[in-house]
Amino acid sequence: MNTLKKEFYRYTDQIGITGSFICLIHCIITSGLMIGSTMMSNASHHHGHAHHHTLDVWGMIDLSMVVVSGIAVYFSTLKSTDEEFQNKLMWATYIVYSFCMLSKYMGFEPVGLTYLSYLMSFSLIGMHTVNLKKCAH
C-alpha cells in the first residue's frame, strides 16, 4: 500500500497538468460550439435565447474536472511542504478556478469569468510544472 501511495504522490503534478489542460481544451471547444450554435440560431430564427448550464454530461465533466484538480492540488501541496508561498498560491488559484467553473451552475456567468477560468487553468498548469521540477530534485 505504501508503494501505491508513493507512486500516486509522484504523479499528482502530472495529473494536475493533464486535468487542467483537458479542462482548458474542453472549455475552449464547448465555448466555441455554444457561441457558434447561438450565432447560427440567431441568424436563422432572428431571436436570442438564454444559455444556461445544467448537470448533463457536460456539467458532470465540468464538476469532475473541479474535483480532479482539487485532488491534484491537495496532494501536490502535501508533496512540496517547503514551498509555503507556492502552495498558498496554488490553492488560491484552484479556489478562483473552482468559483469560475461552479458559478455558471448558479446562473452567474459573465464573460470575464470565462477568461479568468482560462487564466486559472494556465496558471495551474504552470504551477504544477514548477512543482514537478522542484520535487524531482
Rank of each mutant, 00 (worst) to 15 (best):
M1L: 14
N2F: 01
T3H: 11
K5A: 14
K5I: 12
K5R: 15
F8H: 09
F8L: 09
Y9K: 07
R10D: 01
R10S: 01
Y11K: 13
Y11A: 14
D13S: 15
D13C: 13
Q14L: 10
I15M: 13
G16E: 00
I17A: 00
I17K: 01
G19T: 13
G19L: 02
F21V: 05
I22P: 04
I22L: 15
C23E: 05
L24Y: 06
L24P: 00
L24I: 04
H26W: 07
T30E: 11
G32E: 00
M34T: 03
M34V: 11
G36I: 11
S37Q: 12
S37V: 06
T38N: 07
T38C: 04
M39N: 11
M40S: 12
S41C: 08
N42S: 13
A43V: 05
A43C: 07
A43Y: 09
A43F: 09
H45N: 14
H46G: 06
H46W: 07
H47P: 05
G48W: 09
G48P: 04
H49T: 10
H49W: 06
H51S: 11
H52N: 13
H52A: 15
H53E: 09
T54S: 13
D56K: 14
D56I: 05
M60N: 01
I61K: 03
I61A: 07
D62E: 04
V67Y: 02
V68S: 02
S69Q: 04
S69F: 03
S69K: 02
G70C: 09
I71R: 00
A72V: 07
A72I: 12
A72N: 07
A72P: 03
Y74M: 02
Y74R: 00
F75M: 13
S76H: 07
S76W: 07
T77E: 01
T77M: 00
L78V: 06
T81M: 08
T81L: 08
T81W: 06
D82W: 07
D82T: 14
E83H: 03
E83Y: 03
F85G: 02
Q86I: 06
K88C: 01
L89E: 12
L89C: 12
M90Y: 10
M90D: 04
W91G: 12
Y94S: 00
I95M: 09
V96I: 14
Y97D: 00
Y97P: 05
Y97C: 03
Y97M: 10
S98H: 09
S98Y: 04
C100N: 02
M101L: 10
S103G: 01
S103D: 02
K104M: 11
Y105C: 02
M106L: 12
M106W: 08
F108L: 13
F108Q: 06
P110R: 02
G112N: 10
L113K: 15
T114I: 11
Y115I: 03
Y115C: 08
L116A: 14
L116E: 07
L119Q: 08
M120E: 00
M120H: 01
S123F: 06
L124D: 00
L124K: 00
G126S: 05
V130K: 04
N131E: 06
K134Q: 15
C135Q: 11
A136D: 06
A136P: 03
H137N: 08
